[in-house]
């Protein structure tokens, strides 16, 4: 009889001691780099390219308030269709930057099994956010403090950017506006892993 209250008390104490937002609810971060495949269990993600410019051109031309970071990525779902949203760029100062839909950029997509879904995410960020920037992506949305990615796998991909990519600096960013497109037509993957088209 005494065990039940003791167990409840112990469980209550444990729950109050554990910081839930970080220890219980936090997503599982899986690191990667540009060109690497990040295996998330529910999908594979590859960041294929990262470009920086002051303008992007898709559905009209958009001028950055800071600089545009355009991240080209490919999603492939594992065994069921997933919605991918809440793309974030996190800089070295822990500031979080959201993707924009300006000029036809995509902020979310749907990935299906056996198809490779190409997408370009666009972030308008201050130049000092380039150094050490990481892309953070997972299924669902970010919500408050990643509310919809709790206890799920999230890719954290280093973008390999530095201040030398700021437009006007010596190495320079892309001089011309970057052409962007929304989610591209899907490309089916054959049984041998090769693309059919």
């Amino acid at each position: 009889m005494l065990l039940a209250p003791a167990a409840i008390g112990a469980a209550t104490w444990f729950v109050t001691q554990v910081p839930q937002d970080t220890a219980v609810d936090a997503p599982f971060e899986i690191g990667g780099a540009v060109g690497e495949t990040v295996h998330l269990g529910y999908a594979d993600l590859v960041v294929t390219d990262v470009r920086v410019a002051e303008q992007i051109a898709g559905d009209g031309v958009a001028q950055a308030g800071g600089v545009f970071v355009v991240v080209d990525a490919v999603w492939q779902a594992s065994d069921r269709t997933i919605a991918v949203g809440g793309a974030e760029l996190v800089d070295s100062r822990e500031r979080v930057h959201a993707a924009t839909d300006r000029s036809g950029c995509a902020t979310a997509t749907t990935a299906v099994p056996a198809y490779r879904q190409r997408i370009s995410y666009c972030f308008d960020v201050p130049p000092d956010a380039l150094d050490g920037a990481q892309l953070r992506l997972g299924r669902g949305g970010d919500g408050e403090e990643g509310a919809f990615q709790r206890r799920d796998a999230v890719a954290v991909v280093g973008l390999g950017l530095g201040l030398d990519r700021v437009p006007g600096e010596e190495a320079g960013a892309d001089a011309a506006p970057i052409e962007v497109h929304g989610p591209a037509p899907v490309v089916r993957t054959g049984t041998d892993g090769q693309e059919d088209a």
């Binding site: 001028q63 800071g66 979080v96 930057h97 993707a99 924009t100 300006r102 308008d124 960020v125 956010a129």
Partner: peptide, 18 residues
């Protein structure tokens, strides 16, 4: 509208001025 490009703004990220 963002005066620089006459487009609409959806999000304003930290440290960015429009």
């Amino acid at each position: 509208y963002n005066i620089a490009d006459a487009g609409e703004l959806d999000v304003i990220n930290p440290g960015v001025t429009y």
